[in-house]
């Protein structure tokens, strides 16, 4: 198992190298160093300022090794990423580590409660629906799920802001302030919207997974032995449904860190999701590559964790 983990992690290293290359290619396919400079300097900047900006920030060098072997951007891209020297943002020259530090707090404050509340809730609800399968509760549940799934998250946000914040005045409409006495005021609504908007598809997915297990032979055996329904659900069904659940859960973990793009943007929460989107829209290569690099590292680790948790949850899965 340890050998497996080490092997997987070293493959992960290769993946990260690939991601860095792929990002470099994709980014400079979409944007040129001139575009980066233009975004940094603003609409009215004259061509001379753009040229100067490129010189000051090292974007005047050739991109590829075959253009210049000793001084090209691809190599220095790898060099700075692999030495964890993230440097400064192209948009505003702020150290990127500082950006990540200030953005991670709000992002995690939003996604972690969303995850910790949302997951058990949807697993519980889907268990309930699975217990009452083939009854009106199940049918109602499915219809409610589909109803919930057919509504765009944009509508959930606008609806919540209108109803809860504007009409009922429970929380501010949007914004953020990290001082402890008010921070939950700002986060409650986005957390609520995040959970409600995803609960439909989650419950539906877990219901399918549970029904799958409910129909298996060992469940019937257990029931024949006289096990209570609750015990069957907890002991047999939930346990055996762990693989699909784990896949969903562990893979979601790195994305807790990268934040929720739509919620952050609409509720004005200065997190990492909003930071990444701004980096994409603002041609901020230095910030974007760091976010992607860190995301890829987390992702690789999460992948390995998924496989390990498979084998822990289901002894039939062998890791070699």
């Amino acid at each position: 198992m340890l050998a497996y983990v080490i092997r997987r992690l070293s493959y992960g290293g290769v993946v990260v190298l690939g991601v860095l290359f792929f990002l470099f290619v994709v980014f400079f396919w979409v944007a040129t160093p001139d575009d980066i400079a233009r975004r940094a300097l603003g609409e009215k900047a004259p061509p001379e300022a753009i040229e100067q900006w490129k010189i000051n920030h090292g974007y005047d060098r050739p991109l590829w090794p075959w253009q210049s072997l000793e001084d090209n951007m691809l190599f220095s891209h790898y060099e700075s990423m692999l030495t964890f020297d993230f440097g400064r943002s192209d948009a505003d020259d702020v150290p990127i580590l500082e950006k990540i530090r200030t953005g991670a707090g709000p992002s995690l404050a939003l996604t972690v409660p969303m995850f910790l509340l949302g997951l058990p809730l949807s697993v519980m609800l889907s268990l309930v629906v699975a217990v009452f399968r083939e009854t009106y509760v199940d049918r109602m549940g499915v219809v409610l799920c589909v109803l919930g799934m057919s509504v765009s998250i944009l509508l959930y946000i606008i609806g919540a802001q209108f109803l809860i914040a504007k009409l009922l005045r429970w929380f501010p409409i949007s914004g953020f302030d990290p001082s402890p006495q008010v921070v939950m005021r700002f986060l409650s609504l986005p957390i609520l919207v995040g959970i409600v908007s995803s609960i439909g598809s989650n419950v539906r997915f877990y219901r399918t997974v549970f029904l799958e297990e409910v129909h298996r032979d060992f469940v019937r055996t257990a029931r024949a032995k006289g096990c209570g329904e609750a015990r069957i659900m907890a002991r047999h069904v939930l346990r055996n449904a762990m693989i699909p659940i784990l896949t969903q859960v562990v893979i979601a973990i790195p994305f807790l860190f990268t934040g929720s793009l739509v919620l952050e943007s609409f509720f004005g929460i200065p997190g990492l999701g909003a930071l990444t989107v701004e980096a994409i829209q603002g041609n901020d290569f230095a910030t974007l590559r760091t976010m992607v690099f860190v995301g890829a590292l987390l992702f690789v680790v999460a992948q390995v964790l998924t496989d390990v948790s498979y084998s822990l949850a289901d002894p039939r899965v062998r890791l070699e």
Partner: peptide, 18 residues
């Protein structure tokens, strides 16, 4: 100065006196 990316919340908060 508070940052607001969307115009609708600004207006709503204005109506609330914030």
């Amino acid at each position: 100065f508070r940052r607001e990316k969307e115009s609708i919340p600004v207006f709503n908060k204005f109506l609330q006196g914030y």
